[in-house]
């Protein structure tokens, strides 16, 4: 085990465990969960853009809600699905603030689809982040409106089947079709490369919103081995092999 940095050959630290705005690294999310990785890249993006004292976060209900305790940012935790509407009110009162929402696919594609589409159509200058793992994680892994065809969940144990359960809602594509949306991208956190790319998408989204060009949206595919009934190590491959087929990564609009 390495002792403190001083016992090593001359060196420099190239990566800290936590993002600058992160108060703690302790959390109760499952082993192999992608959300904490998304948290950190979001907080890194905010501090790298020097938005610490301008950022106001509006967070929905899900496993990701825990970020409200870990991040040194002004946060409002709101009702399931309502974040984009709440953020609209915040932004209209503080036009210069970097207002963003953090939700899951259940919060957006299921509970709050009207909210996000109306907010995008209105071109609110906010950045909306949707963590998509295709399950309601914090209630134990039920199907959401974004669960992919064939995906096994607690409410589709034999796999999502169009005949009975219909098809996943392509939220990012819907948003990209709205004139009020200025930037739409879809990233993932299943490997170092996708993490770096996703962080660039998030920074771009904040910049474009700050320029006042319109609504910006970044969907982030994250692993949920628990909800996918998989060993933790298989999460990244399942994400790439299954989710990415339904939700291809990249910039869908603007940027």
């Amino acid at each position: 085990m390495n002792d403190s940095q001083s016992l090593l050959p001359p060196n420099r630290k190239v990566a800290t465990a936590l993002a600058p705005l992160q108060l703690s690294g302790e959390h109760h999310l499952c082993p192999g969960c992608g959300h904490p990785v998304a948290w950190r890249l979001l907080l890194e993006a905010i501090s790298e853009l020097h938005l610490e004292n301008k950022a106001i976060g509006v967070v929905g209900h899900g496993c990701y809600t825990n970020i409200v305790q870990l991040a040194d940012i002004d946060f409002l935790q709101c009702l399931h699905g309502r974040a984009p509407a709440v953020a609209t009110g915040v932004k209209r009162v503080h036009p210069d603030a970097a207002v963003f929402t953090l939700q899951g696919d259940g919060d957006v594609a299921s509970e709050g689809l009207a909210e996000i589409l109306h907010t995008a159509a209105r071109g609110e200058r906010i950045t909306a982040i949707m963590l998509n793992n295709g399950v309601f994680g914090d209630t134990g892994g039920q199907m959401t409106a974004a669960s992919v065809v064939g995906q096994r969940t607690k409410t589709s144990l034999d796999g999502r089947e169009p005949e009975a359960h219909g098809y996943p809602v392509p939220v990012a594509d819907l948003i990209a079709s709205l004139p009020g949306a200025a930037y739409v991208a879809r990233g993932a956190v299943h490997n170092a490369g996708s993490i770096a790319k996703t962080k660039r998408y998030v920074k771009k989204a904040f910049e474009i919103a700050a320029q006042g060009d319109g609504f910006t949206f970044v969907e982030v595919l994250t692993m949920c081995p628990t909800g996918w009934f998989l060993p933790t190590a298989d999460g990244p491959d399942y994400l790439e092999g299954t989710f990415e087929k339904t939700f291809p990564l990249g910039v869908l609009k603007g940027g």
Partner: peptide, 11 residues
């Protein structure tokens, strides 16, 4: 970067 529990610091 990939660690969900923030266990690593890199030198």
């Amino acid at each position: 970067d990939v660690c969900p529990d923030y266990c690593f610091e890199v030198f």
